[in-house]
Amino acid sequence: MTTSLAWQRRRGTVARFWRQYRTHRAGLHGLAGLALIALLALAAPLLVGADVQSVTNAPGRALESPSATFPLGTDQFGRSLLGLLVWGARISLLVGLLAAALSVAIGTLVGIVAGHYGGWFSTVVMRVTDWFLVMPALVLAIVLATVMSRSMWTVILAIGVTSWPTTARLVRAQTIAVESRPYIERATALGGGHGHIMSWHVLPNVMPLVLAQTTLGISTAILTEATLAFLGLGDPTVVSWGGMLQDAREAGAVSSGHWWYLAPPGIAIALVALAFTLCGRAIESVLNPKLGVGR
């Protein structure tokens, strides 16, 4: 009985959220863009097939300019760049999602625990967080990516481990705010343990914030993935947008004037990052109209 009530309340919250989100035009555009790109990425096996990655069966000659057969030209192995771009969306989105999820998960855990327990424990945890905050994130990510062997998981880990402190700070502040509400006291009085309070009362209340953080984090993660790939720290055996930019550069596409090799992956990265940012900002302003971002 109580659970169904809770469910009803949650459903109501979601519906209210969506009604407000709909009023943000930019947010809707972002969402539409995301849906389109996600669809493309999911349908990639049907649209282009895993064979686009094959170098031994490459259909074209090296670095062909755009034509009817290859709308975006070919890379140095003679593979279709359009196919690679579509295929690359899978890795770029996957890395972005997983890295942001990892980062937000760490941040939320640290934030809730620090906010809930308080005292010297919180001080120590927040000191560590501060330490990560003053570390230049990109520098730290570069170091991590250098330390481990080149793989997609390395990149995800490097991004996730270096970008969580902001989330931790925000979640901690929110946790403290939530726990000062009377019903938490009531829950404690009724014998709710630490774990119960954190997972049943605090977590649902910080979830919206976490959602906004994740959405914004994905666009940062996608940009960082491209950056690491550009610096030669990506996984050379998978096709991602950042990796394509790096391939283009290594092939000397910039100075030989093959702009069609360089331009599309960059535009794709920018569009996806923009779409996630727009969504994130819309979510944020729904949750906290005072922020004024969406007005």
């Binding site: 666009s219 491209a226 950056t227 930019l245 702009w259 360089l262 331009a263 960059g266 920018a270 923009l274």
Partner: peptide
């Protein structure tokens, strides 16, 4: 949203 190195190369 644009990668800075990409913009620089362009």
């Amino acid at each position: 949203s644009v990668p800075s190195f990409w913009l620089g190369l362009l």
